[in-house]
Design a binder for these strands. Sequence first.
DNA 1: CTGAAAGCGCTTACAG
DNA 2: CTGAAAGCGCTTACAG
Lengths: 342, 342
Amino acid sequence: MPGNTSRPAKVTLNDVATLAGVDRSVVSRVVNGDPKLSVRPETRRRVQETIDKLGYRPNAAARSLRTARAYMYGLFIPDFANPVYAEIIKGAERAAGQLGYGLMTASSGGVRIRLAHYLDLLGQGRADGLLFAGEESGHELEQLRSSKVPWVLVNRRSPGSHRYVILDDERGSLLAVDHLVSLGHRRIAHIAGPESADTARRRRAGYLSAMQGAGLSVDLRHIAHADYTPAGGAAAMEHLLSMPEPPTAVFVANVASAVGVLHAAHAGGLSVPRDLSVIAVHDMPLAGHLVPALTTVRMPLEELGRRALELLASRPPEEDITEVVTDPAEVVVRESTAPPPA
Amino acid sequence: MPGNTSRPAKVTLNDVATLAGVDRSVVSRVVNGDPKLSVRPETRRRVQETIDKLGYRPNAAARSLRTARAYMYGLFIPDFANPVYAEIIKGAERAAGQLGYGLMTASSGGVRIRLAHYLDLLGQGRADGLLFAGEESGHELEQLRSSKVPWVLVNRRSPGSHRYVILDDERGSLLAVDHLVSLGHRRIAHIAGPESADTARRRRAGYLSAMQGAGLSVDLRHIAHADYTPAGGAAAMEHLLSMPEPPTAVFVANVASAVGVLHAAHAGGLSVPRDLSVIAVHDMPLAGHLVPALTTVRMPLEELGRRALELLASRPPEEDITEVVTDPAEVVVRESTAPPPA
DNA sequence: CTGAAAGCGCTTACAG
DNA sequence: CTGAAAGCGCTTACAG
């Protein structure tokens, strides 16, 4: 066959065994570091040298077929455009890599057909487990349950599911509200996420209990719901500004919405933070460069991704996983919060 | 074995064949839609029914081992936090799905060890091809070349490489500059991307030729380089503002930098667009909600991802691919551009 | 029109 | 301490 000078032919276990003068099984055991293999140091060295010389790489398909494991995990996120997931992905990729596994990240993207497509791939044994981040419909969760792949929800719980890893969103809310209270605010509104979102419900609950803890009453009209997008945040802010006694500070459930909040405040003629303080959950590079730079609560997103993958890998699929990742969480003070107008 | 009532045992080709009363090979051909298979309609129907009844899914590992194909492509991006890649990923995922393939997206993340890890996975035959988006070091490209996997660069070219799909960045720059010129600007600065980035060089070239085409001279000190981050954009803007005769408009090479540009202009006491107009390359939801809402040039990012994957899948690995995705590209006018101060 | 058979590249219990 | 052998679940040229 011409042309195979530049493209090296595939090297198999057999090739290594032949050249090293041992059986395939020995090579296999050396490659996999089988502790039960007792072999002369010299033989082991010769095998290793031959592996290096030929550039042998075990064939993943053959290995998977034999061991019934894919050495691959999957991670679904709703939307790559949401920067919150970048950190989660990073943590999960790191954890998978440390276990010698790959991570296949894909977006379910609200497009049901794509999720079905990937679940189909998974049904073919291409992944040994699945992380499922973000808010999806019950229908999709149903598909997930009916698949045979072990899975863990990330950053969300779901009714009747006992396999999830979440952040301590209540504590995040507490940090945010306390920051505003310490600046002297009393009329503190909350722009929450969608009511269907578990994270939104927990942040909302944290807001309510933090307000109560500070001895402040909550005007329920000061709680506006928005989806986790700039457009949603803008609409919610406009609504709050139209109220007879508008708040002096807003605690926003996420940074994407906060972008819209800042825009709407500006469009409404308010100066942030002079007329209105704004703080949001999740820190990211973008936040520090908004106009004005946004004060945030930094949450351990990367740690969340790492932990979720580790638990997926280490716990049996029928066992409950109900873990809350707490540290580190802290307020990052920038330009968008200040004492209320006198 | 207890407990296998809830978890269905794995169904194989053999199970289907036995139950349907045909040979494995017939089932295989039905599953794969082999056009050379001539079988009685009734037999085909019976096989299909049995497949459905048992919920048979072909085992990917066995299939890959036999056919030496993984039915999977890989996509590397430098950083999930950069929203530019979200659209590219979307396009590539769609295209892969339509071919019946999966897409494994991973970040090389500047962390060399992670790229090495994934190239290792690929070396095991886990992907049939690789898309490589964004700017990486020559070292990483070297690794890529030495791997046996077909690859295509996305949104970048590289010296000596003839397999890439890029956008018409020169045209994007032309649209941006023309928009500013039509508003009456003459002192138009450019905040370019890093000199090492191919996209940055093409946008810079487009800026220069558009300025020339408009009969405007370019003060080379009006070209500032920044990396594609808010912090970089802010620093570059501060530099431009310190000049004796600052520009009345800035064409920024990407939206992430533009976030920092708006921040720096605001911090410097300038009102956008009254004192300074700003336009940036690539449109995304965020842009419409910055303060002020950012005028952009929308580029066909999703189409770029789709096209790259299609070409990766359809062209032989030794063949050159040098495609420029052009349409659609358009200026999205928002609040950040206006005529220059009188 | 349908079936028998070889073989893809591994791993692993077992034999010696 | 090392090797022979079976088999994971498929696909495909070939025989009938």
